[in-house]
Amino acid sequence: MGVCKNCGVIIHDTIKICPICSHSLENDGTETNTYPQIFEKLHRKNLAMRIALASAIATCILLLFTDYYFSTHIDWSIIGISTLFFLYHTLHEFLYLRKRLFTIVSGILFRLAILLIIIDFELGFHRWSLDYGLSILLILENINLIVFVFFDKRNQKSYVYYDIWVVLSNLSLLILQALNFIRVDFMTTISIQISVIIFLSLLIIGGLSARKEIARRWHLRKK
């Protein structure tokens, strides 16, 4: 144990300096650490992320600089920065794994949709991102959902609730279509049909537990 003459306290840890006043300690050799040393382990993990962040920022600056001086028609830097942001976020999600895999994949598809719209806009807004991109991504989201329904058996019923949001997202395509943002009907129709069929299948096959899941997700008041 160490004794701090300044604070008048006894210290258990294997240190030579008092942790509360930085005065030197008189140790008798019986000290022991009561907590693990966490900092070094986390420092290494965070270092990878910090290197990725620094590289991304440096690349962004380089892109902006190059774009400003050399590009004439298209703002390539915006596309580059958006893509870097997308890649950085995806790397972060997989490195830290703070969310469920299903949520991570859904998040990637959502950010991909935004990226596609930005790229389309920068390339002259030919609307391919809205006509095809959004529908394809929503079909992929349905596939993501089906895969997890099969493999994540313990959470099967909860996917009925998520599918409601996929159906609603599909319906938003109809609004975009009505507003003339989407001009290719058949992709939207296919996407909506797939999501409605999957939702009804989950509801019917899931039976009572699927319906109960919806009831608890929408419960309003405490009785």
């Binding site: 144990m1 604070c7 008048g8 306290v9 006894i10 210290i11 258990h12 840890d13 240190i15 030579k16 300096i17 942790p19 509360i20 006043c21 930085s22 650490n33 009561t34 907590y35 040393q37 966490i38 900092f39």
Partner: peptide, 22 residues
Amino acid sequence: FSFLAKQNLTVTIETNGEYNGS
């Protein structure tokens, strides 16, 4: 802890190592 030590209490300190002279 100094306040308590001045009241003649024997105080023993343990830490998680965040302030150990680093």
